[in-house]
């Protein structure tokens, strides 16, 4: 793979929680247009790193850059507006709002209806057809009118993916996109990520090595908040340090 420029990068990034270094000097370079997987055992600092990249946690030290622009210390809503969308590991949906209305809200948030004060139904209807397209992409078209709270877990994850896509981000951050999904949903999600990566960069935390293997151009292995290894999946998989630390049980 030719080396495209880094769109999202960190320099010596540190996050310390009362003396515990969850992220301990990470240098990450996510190249534009690639799928970049973050893997590692539980507690390796993957989700913390996600929260740092999206501004939900302030960094203790180090820098984060997006497209060459320093975004360290920016609040999450600014980073989102700069084109970084994320999904959450824990459920982040509005229990009583329908699947379709969720996507409409996300579309509305990016379109920014500007100064209009009343949220008329007519305005919202503008977004309905696009929302239905997105729901169809993630396999939720049949469930568009169900409230998010009533959806089974796998469908909730799919809806979260639709929300992140609705923001039409340059960089899409997915926190365990296939966790808790049945096989069929995993396949559909992999196919979907394969399609949406066409015109954007994807960073994902993922435990399912088949998913990582079939999607990721680059894999960064984290352990104890540090980068243990980085490279193409095939190389990383056979790296003795990685085999010992993490992959050994599943793959070797």
């Amino acid at each position: 793979m030719s080396q495209s420029p880094a769109i999202l990068s960190t320099q010596n990034l540190v996050k310390e929680f009362q003396g515990f270094r969850a992220v301990d000097g990470v240098d990450l370079n996510v190249r534009e247009g690639t799928v970049h997987a973050l893997v590692g055992p539980n507690g390796a600092g993957k989700t913390t790193l996600f929260n740092l990249l999206t501004g939900f946690l302030p960094a203790s030290a180090g820098r984060i850059a997006l497209g060459g622009r320093d975004i360290t210390g920016q609040p999450p809503e600014h980073i989102a507006r700069l084109g970084v969308a994320r999904s959450f590991q824990v459920t982040s949906l509005f229990a009583e709002v329908t699947a379709c209305a969720h996507v409409e809200l996300a579309l509305q948030a990016t379109a920014g209806l500007g100064r209009s004060f009343w949220r008329s139904d007519k305005q919202m209807r503008r977004f309905t057809s696009r929302a239905m397209e997105l729901l169809d992409q993630v396999g939720l078209a049949r469930h568009a009118t169900r409230s998010a709270g009533s959806l089974p877990y796998g469908h909730k994850r799919a809806l979260e993916l639709a929300l992140a896509l609705a923001l039409d981000p340059k960089v899409l951050l997915l926190d365990e996109p296939t966790a808790g999904m049945g096989l069929e949903d995993v396949d559909r999600t992999v196919a979907l990520i394969g399609r949406v990566r066409e015109d954007r960069t994807v960073v994902m935390v993922e435990h399912n090595m088949n998913v990582v293997g079939s999607l990721a151009d680059t894999v960064t292995v984290l352990q104890h908040g540090r980068v243990l290894a980085e490279g193409p999946y095939r190389d990383v998989r056979s790296d003795p340090k990685v085999v010992e630390a993490y992959l050994g049980a599943d793959v070797a």
Binding site: P76, A80, R86, F88
Partner: peptide
């Protein structure tokens, strides 16, 4: 809408790019 969203799910709302 923004206030209700921020009340129920502040993080999701911010991830939508809403201050």
């Amino acid at each position: 809408t923004v206030v209700r969203a921020a009340t129920e799910r502040p993080e999701t709302t911010r991830a939508f790019g809403i201050d």
